[in-house]
Each structure stands twice: as structure tokens, then as C-alpha cells.
């Protein structure tokens, strides 16, 4: 598996940004589940679950990157280096599976269908392509981008339906998420794309948080 190129100066900052994304997606997911509890809306539950999965994915990624930003102690045994590497690989897989499951759940929510079989098929097909591919990280970003194109179109239609500012903010946020993921596709070639992807995601999640704050404050 190829890995993204992380510029030296960015090590640590990436983990900090991912921890921020974890907190924001956790808040949005929890709030969506609160809305589900109040309204009984099925879509709020799916939306909440998808954001909680994405949140868990960022938590794993952040912990992994925090650990990777610290140099290993001198005299570290070969055994512990192998164990650390295995743990790191497991964390990368966990991040990809959690994030992909979250995005598939979000895309399934936008389809507005009630068919668990379709969801299971959709998810298993995505995970199979991801896990059986030779370059998993590359395919992870490509598949995520494809799903985000679909989800962004859904939010564009949602905005055009009512032309509300809040819906526009969410649409723009998903566009930034899409651009961020497209940047990550090239992050195995150049570190600048890795940094760019993080910054674009930061803008996206800031917009999503802004919308959540506006909703909570009743603006």
C-alpha cells in the first residue's frame, strides 16, 4: 500500500486538524440523533450514524498521526517496531473502512429508499473494491470522491428547492469536502496536496459547524 506524503513541518498539525474534524462531526452526528429522537425521522438517524462513523474515522486517523509525529526512542527493539507498524496499518484500514461506511450511509440516506438489502449490497461492493484493490489508499480517495460528487449534487438540489442560506452553506461545505478528497488522491505524489486536502476539509467542517451553531441558536 502506498502512503500519503506528509511534509515534515505539517506533522502534528495534521493530527490536530483531524481531532478538530472528529469533534465537529461528533457534534453534528449527536445532534442529528437528537433530532431523530425528537421527530422520529428515519433520515436524521441515518445522517447521525453516518457522521458518527466519519467521526470515529477521524479519531483513529488523528491518534495514528499523533503517534507517527513522535520519533521512536533510540534502542527500540525490532519487535516493537514491527508491532508499531502493524498497529499503524490496522489504524489506516480502520480509518478507511469507517469513513467509507459513513459516506455510503450518507449516500444511502440521500437516496430516500427503505431497503436494507440495497444498503448492504452498496456497502459490501464499495468495501470489496477498496480492500481488494492493489493501491488501497488511492482507491479510498477515488471512491470517496465519487460518493461526494453524488452527495454534493443532492445538496445542490436541496439548496435549489428552497434557496435558503443554511442549505447553501451545507452545499458549499460538501463541495469543499469533495475538493479536499480530490487533493488527497494526489497526496501519494506530492505533500502539498496532503496539506491542501486538510485545509479544504478544515473550511468544509468550519462551514458545517457554522450551520449547526446557527440552527442551535435559532438564527
Amino acid at each position: 500500500m502506498e502512503y500519503a506524503i506528509v511534509p515534515h513541518w505539517f506533522a502534528g498539525y495534521n493530527a490536530l486538524l483531524e481531532m478538530t474534524f472528529f469533534v465537529i462531526t461528533l457534534l453534528v452526528g449527536a445532534y442529528a440523533l437528537k433530532v431523530h429522537r425528537l421527530s422520529g425521522q428515519r433520515q436524521s438517524r441515518l445522517f447521525g450514524i453516518s457522521f458518527l462513523l466519519i467521526s470515529a474515522a477521524y479519531l483513529v486517523q488523528s491518534i495514528l498521526n499523533f503517534a507517527a509525529s513522535y520519533p521512536m526512542a533510540e534502542g527500540c527493539s525490532m519487535q516493537s517496531m514491527v508491532a508499531f507498524h502493524s498497529l499503524g496499518t490496522f489504524a489506516v484500514y480502520a480509518h478507511m473502512v469507517l469513513f467509507m461506511t459513513g459516506l455510503v450511509t450518507l449516500a444511502y440516506m440521500t437516496l430516500k429508499i427503505r431497503d436494507f438489502g440495497a444498503y448492504a449490497l452498496f456497502l459490501s461492493a464499495m468495501l470489496a473494491v477498496l480492500l481488494l484493490s492493489a493501491n488501497k489508499l488511492y482507491f479510498f480517495y477515488v471512491l470517496s470522491s465519487i460518493l461526494l460528487v453524488y452527495v454534493s449534487f443532492y445538496y445542490l438540489r436541496n439548496y435549489l428547492k428552497g434557496r435558503k442560506m443554511s442549505a447553501l452553506i451545507v452545499f458549499v461545505a460538501f463541495l469543499f469536502l469533495l475538493f479536499g478528497k480530490i487533493h488527497f488522491i494526489f497526496s501519494t505524489d506530492h505533500g502539498a496536496f496532503y496539506v491542501g486536502g486538510h485545509l479544504l476539509e478544515f473550511v468544509a467542517y468550519t462551514l458545517i459547524l457554522t450551520n449547526l451553531v446557527n440552527v442551535v441558536r435559532g438564527k
Binding site: L38, Q43, S44, K112, Y154, N158, S166, A167, I169, V170
Partner: peptide, 24 residues
């Protein structure tokens, strides 16, 4: 109580649902 909560938090539910495209 759930019914009362819904009527009290209706505006928030609508705002959240419409902005995040959660209408059924």
C-alpha cells in the same frame, strides 16, 4: 412528553432537517 418536546423544538428540527436535506 415526546409530543410536547416536538412542538417546543419544532423550529430547530425544521432548520436542521432543511439545511441538511433530511426531509422525507
Amino acid at each position: 412528553q415526546k409530543g410536547f418536546d416536538y412542538t417546543n423544538k419544532y423550529r430547530m428540527i425544521v432548520d436542521f432537517s432543511s439545511s441538511f436535506g433530511l426531509g422525507e
